[in-house]
Design a protein around this nucleic acid. Structure first.
Length: 161
DNA sequence: CCCTGATTCGC
DNA sequence: GCGAATCAGG
């Protein structure tokens, strides 16, 4: 876009008339963004903006918007590997001991003892957790919970009968 | 979805 | 300097 004195004057005129940026863009056959960008550069009086970017949400320093980039966008595997955790996280109080149960994070020492995934508490509440005790070989639950989980076909038949 | 204006930042 | 992309609110 070539901003001649004339187009700048037209922009200023339409701007002071209170036309929307998109409308000015239509009249000048340019994009709304071009209008806003130029108006900003010319220090034209700002319009009432629907956006509140100042006070009110100072707590959150908005993460930078994703940027267009012109080369390869995937990092190499080598670049990624240093990010691999070398230690498992410490157990959290009030939570099942997942480390002891075998969820030791990323590790190379197989096999692991899987943690019992029997749900305890109300899902969606803060206290909800899984049992986490070592589970039976080949089963998702520990001994006591496997007892509850697996109902023998024999028993069910007797119930029905 | 449509609209609005403001800001960022690759070009 | 330019303006598309993006944001954020109506």
């Amino acid at each position: 876009m070539e901003w001649t004195d004339e187009t700048i004057d037209r922009l200023k005129g339409l701007w002071t008339e209170g036309l929307s940026t998109a409308e000015i863009g239509r009249r000048l056959n340019i994009s709304k963004n071009a209008v806003v960008g130029k108006a900003h550069r010319l220090d034209l009086p700002a319009r009432p903006s629907p956006i509140r970017r100042d006070a009110g949400m100072a707590a959150r320093p908005r993460p930078p918007a994703p940027r267009r980039v012109s080369g390869p966008t995937l990092p190499s595997f080598a670049a990624l590997s240093p990010a691999m955790p070398s230690r498992p996280a410490a157990p959290v109080a009030g939570r099942p001991n997942l480390v002891a149960a075998g969820f030791s994070g990323i590790t190379r020492t197989a096999p692991r003892t899987p943690a019992c995934c029997w749900p305890i508490g109300e899902p969606g509440t803060p206290s909800f957790r899984f049992c986490g005790d070592p589970s039976l070989a080949g089963k998702p639950y520990c001994g006591p919970h496997a007892e509850i989980a697996y109902v023998r076909v024999r028993d069910r038949r007797e119930d029905v009968a």
